[in-house]
Every structure is written in structure tokens, then in C-alpha cells.
Deep mutational scan, measured.
Amino acid sequence: TIDDAFRAIERAIQAENEGRYREALKHFLDGGEMIVTAAEKEASQKVRNLLLHKGKEVLEWAEHLAEWILE
């Protein structure tokens, strides 16, 4: 659900702030994927587009974090 997705993102932010970057990455990926999944089930085109945009933002952040971890 969207609530689960945002809880995962909150955990990711907390982990990132505490320097637990790999854990943060996992939570960002989980949250982003949950948002995209919820968007695919959404009946309203406007809400679907907003959710897809937010999911994409979260997944892009996860990608940047992963690249930073690997440096």
C-alpha cells in the first residue's frame, strides 16, 4: 500500500541519516517499487501519473545512492 511505501521511505531516510547506507538503499528501493505497484492499480489517471512520478523519483534517488556506495 501507499502507507507501507511511505513507511519504507521514512525508514530509508532515518537509516541514511544514521549512516546505514545499504539499509537505506534497500528501504528506498522497497518504497519506490511499492509506489509504482500502487500506481499500476490506480483507477484515476491523474493519481496514477502522480504516483508514477513519485515512485520514479524515489527509485532514481536509490540509484544515485547505490552509485555513491560503490565509489
Rank of each mutant, 00 (worst) to 15 (best):
E18G: 06
K56A: 10
A66M: 05
E18Q: 07
E40P: 02
I2C: 10
E60N: 11
A62F: 06
I13N: 01
T37D: 05
F6H: 04
D4A: 05
H64D: 06
Q14R: 11
A66N: 05
L52Y: 09
K54F: 15
H53S: 12
T37N: 11
A43M: 13
G32M: 13
K56T: 04
K56R: 11
N49A: 09
G32C: 13
N17I: 14
E16H: 14
A15P: 01
R22Q: 13
E60Y: 07
L52S: 04
R22N: 12
R48A: 08
A8R: 07
V36D: 01
E40M: 15
T1G: 10
A8V: 12
K56M: 07
Q45H: 10
L50T: 09
I13R: 05
F6D: 03
E57G: 03
E23L: 02
K56P: 02
S44V: 14
H64Y: 08
L70V: 10
A24T: 11
M34I: 12
N49P: 02
K41E: 06
I2D: 01
F6W: 06
E60Q: 11
N17L: 14
L52P: 03
K54L: 15
L29N: 03
F6R: 05
Y21Q: 01
D30P: 02
D30G: 04
S44K: 06
E42C: 13
H27R: 03
D30C: 14
A66D: 01
E57T: 09
R20K: 07
I35W: 02
V58Y: 06
A5E: 01
E57I: 13
H53Y: 09
E18C: 11
H64R: 13
H27D: 04
T37W: 09
A39N: 03
L70W: 13
W61V: 03
R22K: 13
R48F: 14
E63M: 13
A12M: 06
W68A: 06
A12Y: 03
D3K: 13
G55E: 03
A12W: 06
L52M: 10
A8F: 12
L65A: 10
Q14K: 06
F6C: 12
A15Q: 02
E33T: 13
E57H: 10
G19Q: 04
R7P: 02
E16I: 15
R11Y: 10
E10S: 07
K26I: 09
A24E: 02
L65P: 00
E16L: 15
D4L: 10
L59R: 08
R20S: 04
M34C: 05
L29R: 14
D3Y: 11
I9R: 00
E40C: 14
H53E: 14
E67Q: 13
K41H: 09
Q14E: 08
E23R: 03
E67L: 12
W68I: 07
K54N: 03
E23Y: 03
L52W: 04
A62M: 07
R7K: 13
A12C: 10
L29V: 04
A15N: 03
A43I: 12
R11D: 06
H53T: 12
R11T: 05
L25G: 00
L70A: 14
E33A: 14
V47A: 06
K41L: 06
R20A: 03
E40D: 06
N17T: 09
A38N: 04
K54D: 01
D3R: 14
L25F: 04
E67V: 12
I9T: 00
F6G: 01
E23W: 01
E10P: 00
A39K: 03
T1P: 09
V36S: 05
W61I: 05
L50Q: 13
A24C: 07
Y21R: 01
A24W: 08
G19P: 02
M34W: 07
K46F: 13
H64E: 12
V47F: 12
L25M: 07
H64W: 12
Q45C: 14
D3A: 14
R48M: 10
A8P: 00
Q45I: 13
L51P: 00
K46W: 13
E40I: 14
K26D: 03
V47G: 02
L50H: 11
A66E: 03
L50E: 12
W61D: 01
N49R: 07
D3I: 14
R48Q: 07
N17K: 14
G55W: 14
A8S: 06
R11H: 11
E18L: 05
L51Q: 00
K41P: 03
V47E: 04
Q14F: 07
E60W: 07
I2Y: 10
I13P: 00
H27K: 08
I35G: 03
G55S: 05
L25K: 01
G55R: 08
K54I: 15
K26R: 10
R7F: 04
G31V: 11
H27T: 02
E40H: 13
L65K: 00
A24N: 00
E63A: 15
E33C: 14
V47H: 04
L29K: 09
H53K: 15
E40Y: 15
I69D: 02
T37F: 07
A15F: 11
I69E: 00
R22D: 08
A24Y: 03
A62R: 02
L59H: 03
A62S: 01
K56V: 05
Y21G: 01
R20H: 08
T1W: 14
E10G: 04
F28V: 03
A39T: 03
I35P: 03
L51G: 02
H53P: 01
L50W: 15
A62G: 02
E10T: 07
G31C: 09
A62Q: 05
Q45L: 12
F28E: 00
W61P: 00
A62Y: 03
K46L: 14
K56F: 06
K54W: 15
K54E: 02
A43Q: 11
T1H: 09
L59P: 00
I2V: 09
K41F: 10
M34Y: 06
G55N: 03
E57K: 14
S44F: 08
A39Q: 04
E33K: 13
G19R: 04
L29W: 05
I9K: 00
K41V: 06
K56W: 11
A38F: 12
I69F: 07
R7V: 05
V36W: 09
G19L: 05
R20F: 07
W68L: 13
G32S: 09
E60L: 12
E33D: 08
L59N: 01
D4I: 08
G31R: 04
G19T: 00
I2R: 03
W61C: 12
I13L: 07
A24R: 02
E42G: 04
D4F: 04
L59Y: 09
A43W: 07
A8W: 10
A38G: 04
E33R: 15
Q45F: 11
V47S: 04
I13T: 02
E57S: 05
V58E: 12
G19K: 08
G32I: 15
R7C: 08
L59T: 02
A39L: 10
L25S: 00
I35T: 02
E10Y: 10
D30A: 13
W61E: 01
N17A: 10
D30E: 13
G31L: 14
R22P: 03
T37K: 15
D30I: 14
A8K: 11
T1V: 08
E67N: 13
A15I: 05
G55K: 05
E67A: 14
I69P: 00
E18I: 05
A38E: 08
L50P: 03
A24H: 02
R48W: 10
A39D: 02
N17S: 13
Q45G: 11
R22V: 12
Q14V: 08
E33L: 14
N49D: 15
D3P: 05
V47Q: 06
A8E: 13
V47I: 15
K26H: 06
A66W: 10
L29M: 08
K56H: 05
